[in-house]
Design a protein around this nucleic acid. Structure first.
Lengths: 189, 189
DNA sequence: ATAATTTAGTTGCATGAGACACCTATCTAG
DNA sequence: CTAGATAGGTGTCTCATGCAACTAAATTAT
């Protein structure tokens, strides 16, 4: 972390949220806008790509369930709540996705010995298998998409995205604590 | 129906799609996987962030409509089809989003003098206004998220994402021409 | 020990987004 | 002029996700 950027020209911070009184224009602003535009573009493209992939390799793992399986396989059994936190999602979503995985026989709900209310979600052997297959297919596809990228490019890209994700997570939790968990419901008008 | 029995443990890949006979393992593979994981993570986080933003600044522009307004404002009136192509979406989606914008008075449907079937979508003054306001708000938010990033970081990030998006677009159109537009419907099961 | 409260997870309902199929109006070839 | 192609719009489906309300279990207070 590089301190607080461009050193806020010596202005006292306003109350409430930090929200520095920056000029809002200038190079920094334009750069931020540029990256935002690329991110917006990426969101569309990636969603479409993911959907297409799921349609082609439609083998039962929903797009959204993959990440749950990912956590379960790589980190072992977890509770619903822990999963939700890990992937920054609502417990209800996790519950549903997990339910689908259970129906497909890829995940098991075990009783949590420590707490009767909770249950541990764990990947079944078949779940692990399925996940690995999926993972390989996904990566193979990705390698086609990034066929022209050097190893350095890939590493740099991964690093950059990692940083970006870090910021987003920080922001997410920051908001969460600051605004006392304001609901975010979709509702526009 | 999950898996057809995990398709042969370690056999050379079948024909069908191009699927180059690369080793699939090694550094390149791992790097591809790393970037893919970051992208997956990013997709979740960005979606959530976007939703939250929309909830906070709920002023009538839907998330998905923003990009349409973006094209319209920055490139002038466009047909539905052209818009759909520009944002890699279905015409039906564009039609609906545009309809919403029209209802909000941000976009106008003008008759295309050259073709009676078509109509030109154009941003109204209010649409431009609204777009600019939104754009500023979005960028301001982004600047908070990336408060710690230097200008160089931002530029590098934008460049990288630009490249990545280029690859995705290439891939998208490639598939489009190769498989003669295979439908991609969500349908799992 | 029993009541009150807090917590984990599930389910009901709603929203957003996107895609396909189908329909209508128009345009363009033959 | 009729037959096919095309541009847009609508109906309907699916996925993903969130909040609210509810149930059941655990914890705290009385």
């Amino acid at each position: 972390m590089v301190t607080e950027t461009r050193s806020t020209p010596a202005l006292p911070i306003t109350e409430d949220r930090v929200r520095p009184p920056e000029p809002l224009d200038g190079e920094h602003y334009e750069n931020a806008e540029a990256i935002l535009n690329q991110l917006t573009r990426f969101m569309r493209l990636s969603k479409r790509a993911a959907t297409r992939f799921a349609a082609t390799h439609g083998d039962g793992i929903e797009q959204a369930a993959y990440i749950i399986l990912y956590v379960l396989v790589s980190e072992g059994p977890r509770r619903t709540t822990a999963l939700a936190e890990a992937i920054h999602s609502d417990t209800s979503t996790v519950s549903r996705q997990a339910g689908a995985l259970v129906r497909h026989g890829l995940v098991e709900r075990q009783a949590d010995p420590a707490d009767g209310r909770a249950c541990l979600l764990a990947a079944t052997p078949r779940g692990v298998e399925c996940f690995e297959a999926h993972r390989r297919a996904r990566t193979a596809e990705m390698m086609q998409v990034l066929a022209n990228w050097s190893d350095t490019d890939l590493r740099d890209g991964a690093d950059l995205l990692d940083r970006l994700n870090g910021e987003l997570e920080r922001y997410e939790t920051e908001i969460h604590s600051n605004t006392t968990t304001a609901p975010l419901k979709g509702g526009n008008r």
